[in-house]
Structure formats: structure tokens, C-alpha cells
Design a binder for these strands. Sequence first.
DNA 1: AAAATAAAATGATTTTTATCATTTATTAAA
DNA 2: TTTAATAAATGATAAAAATCATTTTATTTT
Lengths: 230, 230
Amino acid sequence: MNMSNCRQCIIKRFNALKTLTNEELERISDHKTSLLIKKGENLMTEGNAINGLYCIKDGKGKLTKLNTNGKEQIIKFIKGGDILGHRSILSEDLVGLNAIALEDMHVCFIPKGDILDTIKENTQFSLNLMKNISQQLNDANTSISQMAQKPVKDRLAETLLYLEEIFGVDNEKCIDVVLTREEIANTIGTATESAIRLLSNLKKDGVIDLLGKRIKIINKIALKNISEGY
Amino acid sequence: MNMSNCRQCIIKRFNALKTLTNEELERISDHKTSLLIKKGENLMTEGNAINGLYCIKDGKGKLTKLNTNGKEQIIKFIKGGDILGHRSILSEDLVGLNAIALEDMHVCFIPKGDILDTIKENTQFSLNLMKNISQQLNDANTSISQMAQKPVKDRLAETLLYLEEIFGVDNEKCIDVVLTREEIANTIGTATESAIRLLSNLKKDGVIDLLGKRIKIINKIALKNISEGY
DNA sequence: AAAATAAAATGATTTTTATCATTTATTAAA
DNA sequence: TTTAATAAATGATAAAAATCATTTTATTTT
């Protein structure tokens, strides 16, 4: 059984679950399970069937896809407030992406049946899910375009700005997520060495600072310009 | 006024509109308008507001995005049976892509209000729209991964297979869509000259044949292997 | 704390891809 | 149907990015 109650949960305010009625929340609260996903563990795995919706309470993660050649492509980053698995539930497809914890994550799992029932009875919830996926689709289309047409340096600049936007900064003004250089490379779609080299160049140019794995954006305007090809 | 009636329209069988009730079809039929989009014309334009759903009766088109540097990226191809504009309606965003006719297209336009009403009253229609967008999102994620990690040659092979799958072949077994070399390049995200060169190589290797602009796949297995990096 | 392992950084080199220049072919216009 | 315009093809070269090799720096493990 589960100590925590969905009605009291503050994280639901940040996603489609905010539209649920008290009655719906009670039902979900009774059926949900809480999970601890440790750093490096998979919350969802590409190719598996899905049997519910995940709501991330806290922690950070990455959504990845394994290429035919075995290389990991990071498609998106996730954090508290995000929901996962609804795409797969709605399309009745297998899961398309791996969800992997970048740090320990607390996650709630809501069975598929409850979600489908709620979709059918609560139009607003339904509309919010659609809105969420629609925005993701728009973002994905933008990514395709940028992957296809921007050079690696521009994509790196873009990604650094995106990471700061998503995760914010810590008390030393560094982007508040710890990624390996390989993960950065797998986000922008380049070789690890290329990512390292370009990061070093950005540091040399005074646009960013590198404190171990942590990255601090020093000149956001310059970075924005680089991301647009100037 | 409009001669044609949605109830009789056969194209609706191929998309989410198939779940509409007779009553809903009548209402839509009364409000819809039919459009002829001539080759090269825009059906939707990036950045514009949307005020309805488009249902393509026949013809072929491309969905594109203009990059910051002014280059066109082709995100997806469209044809009879496809619906357009629902993503933008659902997310309440501006249109994200240009829809441009590759040949004359007949299209029905259904005002936004009717669509939103129908979403609210017909759960099955709603679910079908979600399913459609969910699948598009999955496809888009696959594209991101391939753009980021596959070399141009592999992406070209992939694209040729995709085009044949979407548009089929004509009576000479050529892929049944006419694209310029530039459009092919803008699909796979490369320079026009590179696309031309790689097409020439594939022809020299006997994998495809080039009859003017038309492309015939000769060895599908070889092409599939190339697309996977062999 | 020392040893072992993994990650990051850097250099040298090769491969891939883009760009520029020119020619040839195709399509559209006068 | 000849001319003009556009698209396709090809060669030469430059630029971008990947790969391989090695060193340095962190991070774990013993």
C-alpha cells in the first residue's frame, strides 16, 4: 500500500494530472505505486510494452534511443513534473524510448486502465494530454531540422542553452545537471572527442566555463549567436 | 456552398474522421469548404495561426521547416487521407510547419470550432487524433536519432525506401512522386551536390535506376542494408 | 593512500561532407 | 524551335567532423 496521496501531491500541478477531479484522484491514489529509480537504472525500456503512466516526482533523467549501430541518442531530458508513457498508451504501441535516471528519481506509476478510463470521462484531461504530445511533436520537428542542417558547434551551443533552461543553475551558476561528455555528444549527435574539443574552444573564447563536469554559461548572448550560426 | 458530402466521402475512412457519427458528419459537411491547392502553393504556413483542420482528398505534398539560415528542411511527406492542422489546434500553438503541394491537391477545410466540439463529445475521435499524433511523435524521434547518427549515404537509402513505402510505384516501377534533387537533399539534410553524387553512386552500383527525376529501386535488400550501415 | 579504472583532454590523421566552379541536360519561355 | 532559364551532374578543393593514439585528470576500488 501507499502512504502518499495524489490529492496532496504538489507535483501534479505541473502536468496534465492537474485537471483530475477529487474523485479521479482518489481512485488513482488507491491504484498507484511509488518507485525509486536509482541513478543509471531504466524506468522504461525501448521495445517493451507499457502498462501505465509514470509521473516523475523528483530527480533527473534522459530519454534515449539505441541506434542500429548501437549508439545512444539522447532525445530529451526529463525532470520532476514530467509525465511519461502516455504516448505509448495512446498509440497502443510499444515504448519508443528508454527512460534512464541521471540521478535517483522518485516516480509514481498509474495503471493504464485508470488512465484510459479517465481519458474517456474527463475531456479536459484528455485535451491536456493531447496538448502535451502536440508540443513534444513540435519540439521534435524543430530538432530534426536542427540536427539536419546545423553544424555541431551550433548544436552544442543550442543544447547548453536548452539544458540551462530545463534544469536551471546551482549556487555556483553552473547548469544544474551532471552529464558526461559522452552524454553531451549523444545529445547533439557527434563524437565524444568532438564535443570535448568544442567545449574547450567555447571555454577558451570565454563563452562558458568548465568546472570538472559542471558547465557554467558566462556569455549567454554569445552562445545564442553561435547557436544561430554567427 | 459545397456539392460534396462528408458522409459519402471515401477518404475519411483512412483517418480519424472515420469515427464520426452521421450527425457529426452532417454538421461538418455543412461547414466545410473545399480547396484546390496548386503545385507549389502553401496549404499551411509556419508561424501562422490555424483556424481549422485540413483533410487531404488527393495529391501529394511536403511538410517543411525553414531554418534560421533560410534552408528548407523537409520533415514529412503527405498524401490523400492525411489530416493536417490538428497538432496546432490541440496545442493552441501557431502552425509549426509549412505544407506545400508537390502536385495539385484537393483538400477539405473543417473549421476549428467543429473539431473542438467533436473532440469533446466523441471520445473515440479524440483517441484517434491522439493516436495519430503519438505515432507522428514516435516517427519524429526516430528521425532525430537517424539524422544525428547516420551518415548521409545511409539516410539517403532510408529516405528512398520511405518514399516508395509512402507513395508506391508507377507503372514503370519508379517511386511515384516527383522530387527535385534539392528536395531529396532537404529531406536527408545534406547539400544538393552530395545527394546527387550519392544517387549516382547507387545507380553505378546497380541498387537504383535514375530515369530523369524518377527513381526506381532495383535492389531493395541492398538499399535496406545500406540504410543500416552495411 | 596506492592501484586500478574510467573519463576527459589533446594531437595527428583520415574520412566525410560542403562549397565553389564548370559542364551537360532538361524544362520553360520567347 | 531557338533562346533562356533552371536543374542535374561532375570535378577540384576546402572545411567539418570522425577516428585512432596517447596523455592527463578524475573517480573508484582495494
